[in-house]
Structure formats: C-alpha cells, structure tokens
C-alpha cells in the first residue's frame, strides 16, 4: 500500500517535472548574464539580469513587435466576435435547412492548413494595399479564429436555457433585447474565456504573420526572422516574453480549459 502510494506520487512528480522543466530553464536562461551562460560550469547564474529582456525590447524592436501582436490579436477578436457571435447564436437557437452542412463546413475549415492560405492571401493583399499591414494580419487571424468563435459561442449559448429568453419575451422584450439583457450577461464568463483563447491563438500564430508582413511583424514572426540570427540569450529572452502572457491567460481560464480545448480541437 505504502509502496504503491510512493510510486503514485513519484509518477505525478515525474509528469509535473517533464512539463515544467523546459519552462523553468528558459526563464533561468533568459535571466542569466551572458558570461555565466557561456561558462559551462555555471548552471545557476551568480546573479540575475534583465539585460537581455531590456535589449530585446528596446534595441531589437521587440517592443514594437509586442505592440503589433497585441493590436493584431485585439482586432481579430473584435472582428471574429462581431461576425461570429450572431452565427453562433443562430446555430443553437434556430432550426433551418442546411444547418448541419454549415456546421460541418465550419468544422472543416479548421483542418485546412493556414500555410495553404497565406500565399494567395498575400496576392490579394497586394491588390488591396493590405500587404505588410497590421490589419492584413488581423484579417487573416480572424479567418483562423472565426470558426472557433462560432462553435464555442454556439456551445455556450446552448448551455443557457432558451426558457430564460422566452420568459423575457413573454414579459414584453423583443428577441434582440431579450438576448442583450438576459442571455448575453449569462454567457459573459464563457465568452470572456473564449476571447482569451482567441487571443492566445493569434498571439502564437507565426506562419501567416511572417508571410504577410515584412516590417510590421508580430512578436513570434519577428523572433522567427530576426532574433534567430542573434546570440542565444536573446532567443531565450524572446521565448520568455512569448510564454509569460500565454501562461497567465491560461491560468485565469483554468476552469474552462478542458471543455474549451475540447471544442476548439473538434
């Protein structure tokens, strides 16, 4: 019994260590002074430094790329929710012919590699003067996020009994007002969580962002193309900058984690 218990916790520890070690060490590496990093006998640095982070941000244009990443993500979220929320609502609350076909084709768009889309999009963008622009990347990221938003909002709305809305309509609200006053507030926590997930999807996307832009690159695209030619410790600093916000966001949506990823990956 005792042996079994020790073995169990050993396995748990092993799993946690397996997933945490790389994260911990990239943080360590990002904060290690250059001379300590290149000293093979120093695993743990003599002191921590914010030098690499500072230089990456302000010398290597990381700051600009971070701002662009945030802009792109926010614009994508705004558009995809504005477009996708009504669709998600219609998918749960209305019955109409062709509904299943639409659901299936929305699902299928998720399996089309973005790589396939990036090149022709660039050709279109040249024509509309969207090449190398924040808006251009945001529109492409919206295409990636939108199917997720439709599916997830439809699942959130279906979790809210239609009777709340019908009750409001019986008491004199229009369907639209009933949605705004009753359903939307109830759905808010779930919607917030899915917005955070959308943010992470956009924040992490690198391929489309690097194809579509040259000077206005998002953070991962910037790192993929610029920082890779820089010394190692800048790479680690870059990794840390990209990891921290994502990890914090994930922490706040812990409650929704399993169900949301379950849906987003279906």
């Amino acid at each position: 019994m005792m042996v079994k218990k020790i073995l169990f916790w050993f396995v748990v520890f092993l799993v946690a260590a397996w997933f945490l070690t790389p994260v911990v060490f990239i943080f360590l590496a990002a904060l290690t002074p250059a001379q300590d990093y290149y000293n093979p006998h120093k695993i743990f640095p003599s002191h921590f430094t914010l030098d690499h982070l500072y230089k990456l941000f302000f010398v290597l244009d990381g700051w600009k790329a971070t701002i662009i990443s945030i802009e792109v993500a926010l614009i994508s979220i705004a558009i995809s929710f504005a477009v996708g929320l009504p669709a998600g609502y219609a998918m749960t609350r209305y019955k109409f012919p062709g509904k299943n076909a639409i659901r299936l084709s929305i699902l299928l768009t998720r399996s089309i590699p973005l790589i396939v889309l990036a090149v022709p999009l660039m050709v279109i963008y040249m024509r509309f003067n969207l090449a190398d622009s924040v808006m251009g990347v945001a529109l492409a990221h919206t295409a990636m996020i939108l199917p997720f938003v439709v599916l997830i909002t439809s699942s959130i709305f279906s979790g809210i009994s239609v009777e709340y809305e019908e009750a409001a309509m019986v008491f004199g609200l229009t369907r639209f007002k009933a949605f705004i006053r009753i359903t939307l507030p109830l759905a808010l926590p779930g919607l917030a969580a899915s917005a955070i997930f959308s943010f992470i999807m956009s924040w992490n996307e690198v391929f489309v962002a690097s194809v579509l832009t040259l000077s206005n690159r998002t953070l991962p695209a910037h790192i993929l193309n610029t920082a890779m030619t820089s010394p190692d410790y800048f790479k680690f600093a870059a990794g840390m900058i990209m990891a921290v916000p994502a990890m914090i966001f994930i922490f706040f949506t812990k409650k929704y984690l399993v169900s949301m990823w379950g849906i987003s990956l279906k």
């Binding site: 997933f19 945490l20 790389p22 990209m242 994502a246 922490f251």
Partner: peptide, 21 residues
C-alpha cells in the same frame, strides 16, 4: 492539470526555443 496544459498556451516557436535551451 494546469501544469500539463501549460504547453497548450505556447506557440511552436516558443516550444522550440525551450527545447533549444
């Protein structure tokens, strides 16, 4: 559960950098 799901939040670029570390 949280620890296991951390990599979900990371991009492939970040993961590659961690591996490089």
């Amino acid at each position: 559960l949280y620890i296991v799901t951390i990599p979900l939040a990371l991009s492939d670029v970040t993961a590659a950098l961690m591996s490089y570390t």
